[in-house]
């Protein structure tokens, strides 16, 4: 559905060139929800701007739904944009229009007739659960309701792709869950392909099938959610299944282990650690529900001399262990 090949974007600045995207290759399958995570400045926003054609790549190609966006002339690009819906962090509704008129806007732009517009708008507002608020103005809605209108507007022209730029970063926890539930539901019902840019691990855990980590304009890790989180020691497993910070104090040596409850039940994972004896203990641990299974991460504290043995025995128990240098911030979030 979306195919990025060797995507590079370089901005000229007085202090020399700034490389925002440095050779991105990425494939997003039809009907999936693909998360793109990374620190601010990693290139996430530039990437989404390239997907909408608001930004032209310095080199490389952007193909969306079989159309090479990066080659199109401006007039063709306008038509192509109507096949992509976009949801913004700050929603960007027009304050002077009712929410029905906001949802109608992309239909006006696409030249849809007035009476067809009215039918389609009513349908879209029902889809996002705001059928009874058609005549309200954005100022009269809560943050979560505004984002629902933003989603309805993005879906107005029946796009194949929905791009979401930090869609829940301005919302509280409960509203975030509702909006993500809506996105997942729309994907299931409409078969739409969704790209979500976010810095919130919870968004990726709740809604994404695939996830890509960007750093300094490059892809650091990418793959199916279940795979990337169970890759022990990987930045995404640390970011998406964060363990609580380790308590301060003297450490001996740390072993990090990742397991998925479909292979190793939680009780067996802890029993494997318990069997190692009194001088080995769990320093920090978490178990997160992720895509139907639960994924656990343990940080085990052991005497330095026993590390190879601990690794060996945890592996035998079906966990995926990795000795980590004590100086690392194994418990910190990466993304």
């Amino acid at each position: 559905m979306i195919e990025l090949t060797g995507l590079r974007k370089v901005y000229a600045s007085p202090d020399g060139d700034v490389v925002a995207l440095d050779g991105i290759d990425l494939h997003v399958e039809r009907g999936t929800v693909h998360g793109i995570v990374g620190r601010s400045g990693a290139g996430k926003s530039t990437l989404i701007r390239c997907l909408t054609g608001l930004e032209r790549p310095t080199s490389g190609t952007v193909r969306v739904d079989g159309v090479t966006i990066s080659d199109l002339a401006e007039s063709k690009l306008r038509a192509a944009r109507r096949r992509t819906g976009m949801v913004f962090q700050h929603v960007n509704l027009l304050d002077s229009r009712t929410i029905a008129a906001n949802v109608a806007y992309p239909l006006e732009v696409a030249g849809v007739r007035r009476h067809e517009r009215a039918d389609r708008v009513a349908e879209l507002l029902d889809l996002v659960g705001l059928g009874d608020r058609a005549g309200a103005y954005p100022a009269q809605l809560s943050g979560g309701q505004k984002q629902r209108v933003g989603i309805a507007r993005a879906l107005a022209t029946e796009p194949g792709v929905l791009l979401c730029d930090e869609p829940t970063s301005a919302l509280d926890g409960e509203t975030t869950r509702q909006i993500l539930g809506l996105v997942r539901d729309l994907r299931d019902r409409l078969g739409i392909t969704v790209v979500v840019i976010t810095h919130e691990p919870a968004v990726v855990r709740d809604v994404c099938d695939h996830v890509t980590l960007l750093e300094h304009g490059r892809v650091v890790q990418t793959g199916a959610l279940a795979q990337v989180v169970t890759a022990v020691g990987s930045p995404l497993s640390r970011a998406l299944v964060p363990v609580p910070d380790l308590p301060p104090g003297d450490r001996r040596a740390l072993v990090e282990a990742v397991f998925s409850t479909d292979a190793v039940p939680t009780s067996l994972a802890f029993a494997a650690v318990a069997a190692l004896g009194d001088d080995v203990e769990v320093a920090s641990a978490t178990v997160e529900p992720l895509g139907g299974v639960r994924v656990g991460r343990l940080i085990v504290d052991a005497p330095t001399g026993r590390v190879p043995e601990v690794v060996e025995r945890l592996r035998a128990a079906g966990l995926d262990p990795l000795a980590v240098p004590t100086t690392t911030d194994a418990g910190q979030e990466v993304a």
């Binding site: 909408t52 608001l54 306008r78 038509a79 192509a80 944009r81 109507r82 992509t84 976009m86 913004f88 700050h90 960007n92 509704l93 027009l94 806007y105 992309p106 732009v109 696409a110 507007r153 022209t157």
Partner: peptide, 13 residues
């Protein structure tokens, strides 16, 4: 707000 103009652009205005 510049975001409104950007949104309108993305919608093909």
């Amino acid at each position: 707000a510049p975001g409104k103009v950007e949104a309108a652009r993305v919608m093909g205005s």
